[in-house]
Amino acid sequence: MNGKLLAVGGVAVLLLAGVGGAFVAGLGPFQAESSGEDISEFPTETAPDDTATADDGSDADGGAASTPPFAFTVDAIEECGRTCRDVTSTLTNQQNSTAEDITVYTRIYAGNTTDGGDVVWEGSEGVGTLEAEESYTTTRRVDLSFGDAYAIERADGWITVRTTVETADRSVTLSDQRKVA
């Protein structure tokens, strides 16, 4: 009888260890609902010749540095579950001209970092065309696996959000660090 009890207990321990491992790794039924996209290459900032700046902050012609071409703000964050947030953000074209073929790429990293780290979420959104001073607002669901949430917890609750705005003629990367837990 003790042999059967020991065998059943061993199976239960193995089963719990497997489920616990999947829980921490974010696999199986515990996997996060991703943005539905697999971004193989994440674009980075490039500055066209007409907006290049010198080390002193002046533009290439010696004048004052111009306003950044885009502003990106997070307007609201609403809880939709323990590891889920609906994030509303706005992109504004701050240029004096129309921006075309706009795509916004966003990656969220665990930790307060400037050189990346564990990617816990990524997504992209096709915006299309924005006239001068026009804005585009959208709400995206950020649903993390328990493993990704744990990575943020291990990083003392800090995340880094890196957003690249890619247009027909330039790419601009914005980065923000936040304490979320």
Rank of each mutant, 00 (worst) to 15 (best):
A110N: 05
T90M: 15
G62Y: 02
E41V: 15
T138A: 14
T103L: 04
Q95V: 00
I39A: 12
V120S: 05
V127K: 07
S145C: 02
R141H: 05
T92E: 12
D38Q: 13
C84R: 11
A151C: 08
A47D: 07
P43F: 10
N96F: 09
V104D: 04
L130K: 13
A47M: 09
L91V: 11
S145G: 15
D143R: 06
F23L: 12
F42S: 09
T51C: 07
A64S: 13
N93E: 02
G57I: 01
D101I: 03
R85W: 09
G128D: 04
T138P: 02
T67E: 14
S135E: 12
C80K: 10
F72K: 01
V24L: 15
L130V: 04
L91M: 13
D55I: 01
E134S: 15
D59G: 15
C80W: 03
I102Q: 09
N93W: 06
G63R: 09
S40K: 15
S124C: 01
V74P: 01
S135K: 04
D118L: 10
T106V: 14
E133V: 03
R82W: 09
P48H: 05
D148K: 05
G81F: 04
L91Q: 14
D86I: 04
L91D: 13
A65N: 08
E153D: 14
Y105Q: 06
I108C: 05
E133G: 07
E131R: 15
D118Y: 03
A22N: 10
P48R: 08
F30S: 08
W121K: 08
L130C: 11
S135T: 10
D61H: 04
D49R: 09
A99R: 12
I108W: 06
W121T: 04
V142A: 07
G63V: 00
V104K: 11
E125Q: 14
G128S: 04
A132L: 02
A71P: 01
V142I: 14
A149S: 14
T83S: 11
S58P: 02
E100N: 15
L130H: 11
G123S: 11
E133A: 12
A54F: 07
P43M: 08
I77L: 07
T98L: 10
I152R: 12
A71K: 12
I39Y: 11
T103Q: 09
D61V: 00
D56L: 03
V119D: 06
V127W: 04
S34F: 07
A22K: 07
S135W: 07
G147E: 06
W121E: 08
A54W: 02
D118N: 12
A132V: 00
D56Q: 05
Y109E: 05
G57D: 02
D86Y: 06
S40G: 10
S135D: 12
Q94L: 11
A110E: 02
E133P: 01
G116W: 09
F72D: 01
T137K: 14
S135H: 08
A149C: 06
A64E: 13
T88Q: 15
C84D: 04
V87P: 06
A149L: 10
C84L: 09
N96P: 03
N93L: 05
